[in-house]
Design a protein around this nucleic acid. Structure first.
Length: 632
DNA sequence: TACTCACAG
DNA sequence: GGCTGTGAGTA
């Protein structure tokens, strides 16, 4: 007989409850050295090319080919180049000071002998937009396959694949290729469908034939136990096949290799996906989870959210060993209550070294969490993605890079363009209208003195606009300048940090107009006359079109690539809209490929919503903004 | 609203 | 160890 009950199995049907079941099947997928892969794919390199992604002088992502030369994250590019001249450094995209669009400058970076191609951080700001874009494409594939996906970061996702596993087990599919399904499956399927059944009986034993189900990937099994003993193992085996298929799809359509961890809880999944890299998947069966957590590589501080001060304080206050802490906690506190009691007592008794982060009113909560974590039983739901709650554009500086109000305005111009662009992209993705209600700026002087100011953000129109953001931000900065720098004996400048953020995001339903769904990706591909969705759209960077910003159709050159891009989008949007509307005798219907293109497309301006006036584009022009604030 | 802290890749 | 974030807490 199984150790699980029917209701454990039927609970998996409900995405809101599945994570609580002991038969829960989750996975965590992590794109390997994400920034490096993005750059490698964009520039047409393969996995065997030693690409590194560079940010100023630092290497922020290292391809596996480059790791073979002993290059790791956070070494300087100068040091890395000493190790091998084969290295392929690619700098992130950047905004130039005073400009509101980003660009790649391939070949530029601190290693470039040309003085004008070194990308000094005093004149540029990093753009992470390309990674957010790729991230969205990847995430979209996950949500197409899986009914419950959580975006954990730009390169990570949690999936609840229980329904997909059930579909395999309880559908009509042949479970083991080339063999009849065991006889017991048919009646099980019937019972499974019976909604009135409460499910208090135990499941039958797993039939011998089913124990031959293969796993795809590496099963963590140091003691060589039988791979399949109960139904949780059956579901994991099916899940491993599903995870492989998902990852294959990501690889095939977008080119990215990933690492995956399968387990019953998010925390264990996360550790498992990190266990073997790159391009691998690790399965942690429930019967092996304690052995996995005790394998010598993990401590309680390895768990997500315990990596900082909280984890260290728990070790301190509970007097845990530096090594083998998971097992120690399991064995010393065999019941929930015993750990609750010990922790609350320990917090009370630690007056001499008072805890800075363990809230005395919440010790039970923390004790329960720890109790479950060390057993691989801390069950947290996979929560579907929510729209971000705030957005920040930030710039750190050294030296004299920001030594006055004019410099501040130049950076604000960058921030305003960046944030407006990001809001546009979000609107596109969700087909929503997003209005930030609050704007916030912060400056930090070399002394460490920090000042910030926030206020309501009121747009001039229906859609967010970088001019409005710039004005609102500049007003706040000017107030800070007047308050803290004007007429003071020692000036506040130079700054080491300045940032602007928007929050209180108001989200309303998007408009239904098809035209509103057009965007850069679609335009780029249509312009090229073909539709390879993934790589092309990024490689032919929409922000940096070829041939001098020249429009053949209008016989006209545009000053900046961004202006050109908007113009080009105009043509594309009109062309597609004519097709949809049946103009020029066309069918009036988009092909499946075009629809899919539009579904995946990113942003931005549409013909009737374009900015009336092109933006200023030189650093000097931003001083025009002074006219708004002559009076402080 | 102003500011600080914790945590993560 | 640099950079770029997100979110929570406090007064």
């Amino acid at each position: 007989m199984s150790q699980f009950k029917w209701k454990d199995l039927t609970k998996l049907k409900n995405p809101n409850l599945a994570f609580e079941s002991p038969l829960s099947v989750l996975c965590h997928i992590d794109v390997n050295c994400f920034y490096a892969q993005v750059e490698a794919i964009r520039c047409g390199y393969t996995k065997d090319d030693p690409v590194v992604c560079v940010q100023w002088n630092s290497i922020v992502a290292v391809s596996y080919a480059a790791r073979k030369y002993g290059i790791s994250r956070m070494v300087t590019i100068q040091e890395a180049l000493k190790k091998t001249d084969k290295l392929i450094p690619i700098h992130t995209a950047v905004f130039k000071k005073g400009e509101d669009f980003w660009q790649y400058h391939d070949g530029w970076g601190p290693w470039n002998p040309d003085k004008d191609k070194k990308l000094p951080s005093s004149d540029y700001k990093i753009s992470l937009d390309p990674y957010r874009r790729e991230s969205r494409k990847i995430f979209k594939i996950f949500t197409e396959y899986c009914d419950l996906a959580e975006k954990a970061s730009v390169d990570e996702v949690f999936l609840d694949i229980a329904r997909l596993c059930l579909q395999s087990l309880m559908g009509s599919e042949q479970l083991i290729p080339g063999r009849e399904n065991p006889e017991i499956i048919k009646p099980m399927q019937a019972k499974f469908k019976d909604e009135s059944y409460e499910g208090n009986e135990f499941l039958p034993a797993v039939p011998e034939e089913l124990k031959q189900l293969p796993f795809i990937g590496d099963v963590y099994n140091p003691e060589n136990l039988p791979l399949i003993e109960d139904w949780d193992d059956v579901l994991f085996a099916l899940g491993s096949r599903i995870a492989q298929e998902l990852r294959d799809e990501i690889k095939q359509s977008l080119g990215y290799t990933t690492s995956c961890g399968l387990a019953s809880t998010k925390n264990v999944c996360k550790l498992a996906s990190n266990f073997k890299k790159p391009d691998a998947q690790t399965i942690i069966k429930n019967s092996c989870v304690n052995a996995f957590l005790d394998n010598g590589k993990f401590e309680i501080t390895t768990f997500w959210s315990l990596g900082g001060i909280l984890g260290k304080e728990l070790i301190q206050i509970l007097q845990l060993p530096q090594q083998g802490s998971n097992r120690y906690v399991r064995e010393k506190w065999p019941t929930r209550d015993s750990l609750r009691t010990s922790l609350s007592k320990a917090v009370r008794d630690s007056q001499s070294t008072p805890s800075t982060v363990i809230d005395a009113t919440r010790t039970n909560e923390i004790a329960d969490k720890l109790y479950d974590l060390v057993r691989g039983q801390y069950r947290v739901a996979v929560t579907p993605q929510t729209i971000v709650k705030s957005m920040m554009a930030n710039k750190n500086m050294t030296g004299q890079a920001c030594s006055g109000l004019a410099d501040c305005f130049s950076w604000l111009e960058v921030f305003a363009g960046e944030l407006a662009g990001r809001v546009h992209e979000l609107e596109q993705e969700y087909d929503k209208v997003i209005r930030p209600r609050t704007i916030h700026v912060l400056i930090r002087a070399k002394s460490g003195d920090t000042h910030s100011k926030s206020g309501p953000f009121i747009q001039s129109g229906a859609k967010i606009n970088s001019q409005d953001l710039l004005k609102a931000g500049a007003k706040l900065i000017a107030e800070l300048d007047a308050k803290f720098a004007r007429g003071k004996e020692h000036s506040f400048y130079p700054l080491i940090n300045i940032n602007m953020s928007i929050s209180n995001l108001d989200v309303a339903d998007g408009r239904k107009s098809v035209l509103d769904m057009f965007g850069n990706q679609a335009s780029v591909q249509v312009r090229q006359g073909k539709g390879n969705v993934g790589k092309d759209s990024l490689a032919s960077n929409a922000h940096k079109p070829p041939r001098e910003n020249w429009c053949d159709e209008c016989n006209k050159t545009f000053e900046t690539s961004r202006d050109f891009q908007e113009h080009a989008d105009f043509h594309i949007a009109v062309a597609l809209s004519e097709k949809v509307n049946g103009a020029n005798g066309s069918s009036g219907r988009l092909t499946f490929g075009e629809k899919r293109l539009l579904m995946r497309s990113n942003t931005l301006e549409t013909p009737n919503k374009r900015r009336s006036k092109p933006k200023s584009k030189t650093a000097g022009s931003s001083s025009d903004i002074f006219k708004y604030f002559k009076k402080g």
